[in-house]
């Protein structure tokens, strides 16, 4: 019986339906299914499927976003239940995300955050136009494993290098890993500024993040 429910949970993610994923999450609580089971056997299966399909060029970016939102809704119901049981999801790691100073573009970054959360990372998204101090400050405050920075403009991407240089100056690497992304970012740039990871899309970003925290 739970098998049927787990299938429906995965489907609600694939369909990107937050209403249904919320409903199914609540139903699983009523049926005394362990929240972690609901997450790992139900909803995460859907996230993984959509991610794989996207990687194959078979699923679309809007579907990815909707799947992420549906996952968020389900987690919002299930996480409090986990805490009540005195348990928690196995956290992959802590990530601070930001769009660099002088840049206010954030769609890609937000999607990366959604996908990382859906995959078990604890994400603090600072938003746009964030100075190096703010980014590094937050990373130290929450003891982050990864800093992820986004830039859309050729005029602002140089800020990514500045943050890395500051981290190195303070001796905070390799304890904190740095991922960068954004439309003008290339592998050459990533090598040049000695970032630890880069992906062209949000699904790849999750993979890289897992590798950086040694969980892949």
């Amino acid at each position: 019986m739970s098998e049927e429910l787990f299938k429906e949970m995965a489907q609600s993610i694939i369909d990107g339906d937050s209403d249904i994923s919320t409903e199914l999450a609540k139903k699983s609580i009523e049926l005394n299914i362990h929240p972690l089971e609901a997450i790992t056997k139900g909803f995460v299966v859907g996230v993984t499927y959509i991610g794989d399909q996207f990687g194959l060029g078979e699923a679309f970016l809007p579907e990815l976003v909707m799947a992420g939102e549906a996952m968020k809704s389900a987690i919002a119901v299930l996480e409090p239940e986990l805490l009540k049981l005195g348990e928690a999801r196995e956290m992959m790691g802590k990530v601070v995300l930001a769009t660099v100073e002088g840049d206010i573009h954030e769609i890609g970054k937000t999607l990366v955050g959604t996908m990382l959360s859906a995959s078990g990372f604890e994400v603090v998204d600072l938003g746009v136009d964030q100075s190096a101090d703010k980014i590094i400050g937050k990373a130290l405050e929450i003891n982050a494993d990864i800093i992820g920075m986004s830039a859309l403009l050729t005029t602002t991407m140089v800020r990514q290098r500045e943050v890395i240089e500051e981290l190195d100056k303070e001796g905070l690497r390799p304890r904190i890993k740095v991922m960068v992304g954004g439309a003008p970012i290339t592998q050459d740039w990533v090598k040049k500024i000695k970032a630890d990871g880069y992906s062209e899309d949000a699904i790849g970003a999750v993979k890289i993040a897992k590798e950086l925290v040694g969980k892949e």
């Binding site: 996207f54 060029g57 679309f60 890609g108 999607l111 439309a183 899309d201």
Partner: peptide, 8 residues
């Protein structure tokens, strides 16, 4: 347009 398979 956005390329729906990559966001580009």
């Amino acid at each position: 347009m956005m390329e729906p398979r990559t966001g580009a």
